[in-house]
């Protein structure tokens, strides 16, 4: 049996005390334990930011690459070895700013992985500039007159025909952990947008601000198979903010659509130099 101890790390955590990332880290660990996944079966892929430090604070395989480029690296790893449970981790800057094109491609292709986006609506690592999801009017050092229109990542994901879309809240670890479990179990690309209070640089969207507003869609008899309903739900923001599974559908994952990958992962396929040799002889 896998226990929380298996995911314990001795690396000192460099997040601010009270950071929403602590709740997300706990939810990730709990989800992996609940699924009885051993750390060596899990690959964390992350970019640059405060969120992408998460894999340093737990155990598992880790690929820490460039800012905004988590999904291409994760796609490569998953294609080569789809026995791995691949979890991508980014902040709103990497996922919805510099890497937003990759998000659409991974979602459209339906790469079988889970993508956790710690969305605190601000750049934390570079100390408090506006991010793509900063609310209109949000004042930072790069937007002293207030940020412009925020990007709606849920709408964007639905437009790319995503197969699993959820939103969680770092302040509700049990609920978030359930979403992460569902995301990992889902066959296909799962985006979980996680509302994350930033105690240092976002004094607007605070823990209390989110807590007053979030509600669970499942408690209101919401049907997450209904895409039209999901499009409406995805636009709710402000007084009430929905959390839970926003949309879910079954569609073929990337590796099922390629004959070369269908039978088994690339890493398990034998290399047959004779056949290449015969081909080369033709020239």
């Amino acid at each position: 049996m896998v226990t929380l101890n298996d995911y314990a790390s001795t690396v000192p955590i460099a997040w601010c005390p009270g950071c929403g990332n602590f709740g997300i880290l706990q939810a990730v660990k709990k989800a992996l334990v609940a699924l009885n996944l051993e750390p060596q079966r899990v690959l964390f892929v992350s970019g640059i930011g405060q969120a992408p430090k998460l894999p340093h604070y737990t155990r598992g395989n880790l690929f820490n690459g460039l800012h905004g480029r988590t999904l291409p690296a994760a796609t490569g790893a998953k294609i080569a070895n789809h026995d791995l449970t691949v979890i991508g981790i980014d902040g709103d800057g990497g996922a919805y700013g510099e890497g937003v094109g990759h998000l659409l491609a991974a979602s459209r292709r339906n790469i079988d992985m889970t993508y956790l986006v710690h969305n605190n609506q601000v750049y934390g690592l570079t100390k408090g500039q506006a991010s793509p999801t900063s609310d209109t009017g949000f004042i930072t050092k790069t937007t002293p007159n207030g940020a412009g229109l925020p990007l709606n990542p849920l709408m964007l994901a639905l437009a790319s025909d995503i197969s699993f879309l959820a939103r969680g809240f770092a302040g509700d670890i049990e609920h978030l952990s359930g979403l992460i479990q569902a995301g990992i179990q889902h066959r296909g690309f799962a985006l979980i947008d996680i509302l994350q209070p930033c105690v240092s640089f976002n004094h607007t969207n605070t823990f209390a601000w989110y807590k007053e507003r979030v509600y669970k869609v499942e408690s209101e008899g919401y049907n997450h198979a209904d895409k039209a309903a999901a499009l409406i739900k995805a636009q709710e923001w402000g007084e009430r903010i929905p959390i839970g599974i926003i949309y879910r559908q079954e569609r073929p994952v990337f590796e099922e659509q390629l004959p070369q990958l269908k039978a088994m992962p690339l890493v398990k396929q034998p290399i047959d130099p004779m056949r290449i040799g015969a081909l080369l002889d033709e020239f």
Binding site: G68, G97, E98, V100, L125, T126, K127, Q129, A130, P132, K141, T142, T143, P144, N145
Partner: peptide, 28 residues
């Protein structure tokens, strides 16, 4: 990092009206 202070201060100067310029906070 470690360039951010330069452009943060420029954003501030523009916002304060001390520099008559357009400041574009882009995505990359």
């Amino acid at each position: 990092t470690p360039q951010t202070h330069i452009v943060e201060h420029l954003a501030e100067l523009v916002a304060n009206g001390e520099l008559d310029a357009e400041y574009i906070p882009v995505e990359s």
